[in-house]
């Protein structure tokens, strides 16, 4: 089994944590109850699940510009994921991650990252070198 995945260089610092993965998209505004730290959108595949301190693995970021401020606010309250891995990030999530110093990576050369990583696995994320490894 492949345990090292290459991606574009990301943003943030090296982190390790438990994966929470779904072939679904992400918006802090549309999908989350940020006070409780859970996915709240009924149609989201992770509805009811806590994202706090997880390595979130999702398809794309979507929707609104609010996510940029919201990631900062979530990190300040320590109610944020440790990192977010996307197949493709939109501009807002990259900007928000930069502002919040949250680790983010995308554009994996090995394929769909939501199928390569499963919930419950532990991974190390190295955004400086664009590497994610199962540990």
């Amino acid at each position: 089994m492949k345990i090292l995945f290459k991606c574009h260089i990301g943003i943030g610092t090296k982190v390790q944590g438990e994966v929470l993965s779904a072939n679904d998209n992400f918006s802090a505004r549309y999908d989350l109850d940020r006070l409780k730290g859970i996915f709240s959108r009924p149609q989201h595949k992770l509805v009811g699940k806590s994202y706090v301190d997880k390595i979130l693995v999702l398809n794309e970021s979507k929707g609104g510009v609010a996510s940029a401020w919201m990631l900062y606010e979530m990190c300040a309250r320590k109610m944020a994921p440790k990192a977010i891995l996307f197949n493709k990030a939109n501009t807002i999530l990259a900007q928000g991650a930069s502002f919040a110093n949250l680790t983010i990576c995308d554009r994996f050369i090995d394929g769909d990252i939501t199928s390569l990583l499963s919930s419950g696995q532990r991974v190390a994320v190295d955004p400086i070198n664009g590497l994610v490894s199962i540990i």
Partner: peptide, 8 residues
């Protein structure tokens, strides 16, 4: 224009 989040 890109989507520019508030901080950007």
């Amino acid at each position: 224009s890109n989507y520019e989040g508030g901080p950007s």
